[in-house]
Amino acid sequence: MNPTANAVRAGLARGWIELRQLFTTGPDLIGQFMSPAIALVVLYLLRNREYAGSDLSIAELAVPGLIGSIIVFNGLFAITNVLVLDREDGTLLRAKAVPGGMIGYVVGKIVSAAGSVVVQVAVVLAVGMAVIGGASLGGLSVWATFVWVLLLSLLAALPLGAILGAVLDGPRATFLLTMPLMGLVAISGIFYPITALPGWLQAIGQMFPIYWSGLGMRSALLPPDAVAVEIGESWRHAETAAVLGAWAVAGLLIAPVVLRRMVRHESGSSMAARRERAMQRAF
Rank of each mutant, 00 (worst) to 15 (best):
L252Y: 12
V118I: 15
A248M: 05
N48L: 12
R260V: 07
N6C: 03
N81D: 12
S270H: 12
L56S: 11
V111S: 08
V41W: 10
G245F: 02
P180N: 09
I194P: 00
R49N: 12
L155H: 11
D169C: 01
Q206S: 06
L125Y: 14
R260F: 04
A241V: 15
V82E: 12
D169N: 15
G15W: 02
A130W: 14
A246Y: 01
I190Y: 01
A95F: 14
A62T: 05
G65N: 09
A173E: 10
L83Q: 13
W200N: 05
G251S: 03
G134M: 02
R277L: 13
V147S: 13
S136Q: 14
A37C: 07
A144G: 11
E276L: 11
G90K: 11
G108R: 07
W143I: 10
G245L: 02
G26Y: 07
L29E: 07
Q32P: 00
V149F: 05
G170L: 02
S269P: 00
T174Y: 01
I194E: 06
G15T: 11
F208Y: 13
G216R: 13
V249D: 00
A95I: 03
S269N: 12
L83P: 06
P223E: 10
L152H: 10
V63K: 01
M179H: 09
H265F: 07
P36R: 09
I71D: 02
A226Q: 03
I132A: 05
G216E: 14
I132W: 08
P256W: 05
A166K: 02
W143T: 08
L181M: 15
G11C: 06
L140Q: 14
R260L: 09
A62K: 02
Q280E: 15
R260G: 01
T24F: 12
G101W: 06
Q202M: 09
A144N: 10
A113G: 02
L253S: 04
P64C: 11
A250G: 04
V118D: 00
P159G: 03
V257D: 01
Y192N: 08
I58P: 00
P36G: 08
R87T: 10
I58K: 04
V82R: 13
I190E: 01
V127I: 15
V106D: 03
L164W: 07
Q202G: 10
D55I: 03
D89P: 01
A241L: 14
S269G: 07
L19M: 11
G161Y: 04
R281F: 02
L221T: 07
V258F: 00
V72F: 02
D55P: 08
A59M: 05
Y105Q: 08
E239R: 13
L181T: 12
L56R: 10
T25C: 00
A242W: 11
Y44H: 14
T4F: 06
G115T: 07
M262T: 15
T4R: 12
R264W: 12
P223V: 10
